[in-house]
Amino acid sequence: MRYIPIELDEDSIAELLDPAIDPSDLEFAVVHVNNGVRSYAAQNPSLTPTHIQWLLTDLAQVQAGLAQNPSIDSQTLKTLAASTHIRVRSNAISHPAFPADALNDYVGDPSSRIRAAVAASPHASAETLALLAQDSEFEVRAAVAAHANTSPAILSTLSNDSFDEVIRAIAENPHTPLDVLERYLNGTHHQKLNVAKNPSLTDEILKRAITKAMELTEDQDESWEDSRGDTSLRGWIAERNPLSPELISILSADPYLWVRAEVAKNPSVPDSVLAQLALDPEESVRRGVVDNPSASADTKATAALLGIED
């Protein structure tokens, strides 16, 4: 036997995490001298019970990986949750297989990282989340704001939080009340960016937002012509998938070329619309059509006819 290095890059990490990895290769990774390799191998769902027993005796970095393993059992997670290492405990507690009834033991933990792990657990109850919503640390509140079990009322309260991380989580949460989402659509640049793809937004709200986004902003005048209004917001809405036929119709006729280019790239746009965009005078729009997997061969050929640079 000789030392065979495993360089950790995107491909090797994907292989280490792949449940279909060859069992011999997995064992080789599990006992590899590189801590990082063992840490990723510990996350592989195909670990044997022996592997798990070995890794439970390993360094905290490796145990933290084990605590993220999707197939790990609840008893092992309880063992890991008793670790002296904060990261191992945190990963174990936030794991979906961590027993719901054990969560309450950690709600009052002195460390905000553990409280955030409780708030990130899918088993966290509405009551627990309501309690943690009042936490002094933003990372805990951000976890509450992102949670599917958090009540709309709590989400509404948290929507005025002073930390961007909390606002972003509220903006992306599908359970956030529509009035909050609409407020964000008319709010700051970051609020708009994060809320624009929220799946709960209705066409009515989005149409109102697009209409408002066509108006001149405070620092614009008539000379802005096609690029007038909040083109960023219109572009972000154009990236939504799915995008309704009505919104497609509005945005595919947008005066600003980069908004039309986003529509042209959107896989939820039908070929009939893409065929029209294939004739767009702007190359960036035609390029979007060529790259769109939903565009037919004819449509792509049409887009290319007017010229697309490599």
């Binding site: 036997m1 000789r2 030392y3 006992v31 590899h32 001298v33 063992r38 070995w54 005796t57 390993d58």
Partner: peptide
């Protein structure tokens, strides 16, 4: 002791002895 030995091999002799 297998795992603690394997994960701490640090010389050519160690690897040969692991086999």
């Amino acid at each position: 002791h297998y795992f603690s030995i394997m994960s701490r091999l640090d010389s050519d002799e160690d690897f040969a002895q692991a086999s």
